[in-house]
């Protein structure tokens, strides 16, 4: 067991509200895992979604940027010629998601963090990502900016 994890030993049987009796881990079982790994996992998912949302919006705003994103997808994805810049947008999602997870996981996995803050950040990011991929939003902003 790693030193940082040793500081959060469960000392009593674990119970779940609504379930009679102990469920899962007791003091005799392995020590509790800090919540950092979970927060890293869902924040990385959000970062991937948000990065793609930003790129989708930017591609609508700039043809030159869209071509660069297309080139990124064509660099590795089979059939990218047929699906156009969508291949690059998928690539951005994968790179941002898995890349940020690879960074966040080792940074956070031994820490017990504020789950409320993590969830708030996650939901805010997912909300922005969803807004950015909703086409009427592109049309609204891009139509107004071109006037």
């Amino acid at each position: 067991m790693k030193p940082a994890e040793a500081s959060v030993v469960e000392t009593s049987p674990v119970t779940v509200p609504g379930v009679p009796g102990p469920v899962g881990q007791t003091a005799a079982e392995p020590q509790s895992i800090p919540n950092g790994a979970a927060i890293a996992a869902y924040l990385a998912a959000m970062i991937g979604m948000l990065a793609m949302g930003i790129v989708v919006f930017a591609c609508e705003a700039s043809k030159a940027f869209s071509e660069k994103i297309y080139a990124l997808g064509k660099g590795w994805m089979p059939g990218a010629d047929g699906i156009g810049p969508y291949s690059g947008k998928e690539t951005i999602l994968l790179l941002a998601w898995l890349g940020s997870w690879a960074i966040l996981h080792p940074l956070l996995r031994r820490k017990h963090l504020d789950g409320y803050l993590g969830l708030t950040l996650f939901l805010a990011g997912v909300g922005i990502a969803t807004t950015l991929v909703w086409p009427p939003v592109w049309h609204f902003f891009l139509d107004h900016s071109s006037k």
Partner: peptide, 12 residues
């Protein structure tokens, strides 16, 4: 996390 997720401390 396995069944550790059922502990009170992992409610969030």
């Amino acid at each position: 996390y396995g069944r550790q997720i059922l502990a009170d401390r992992h409610a969030r």
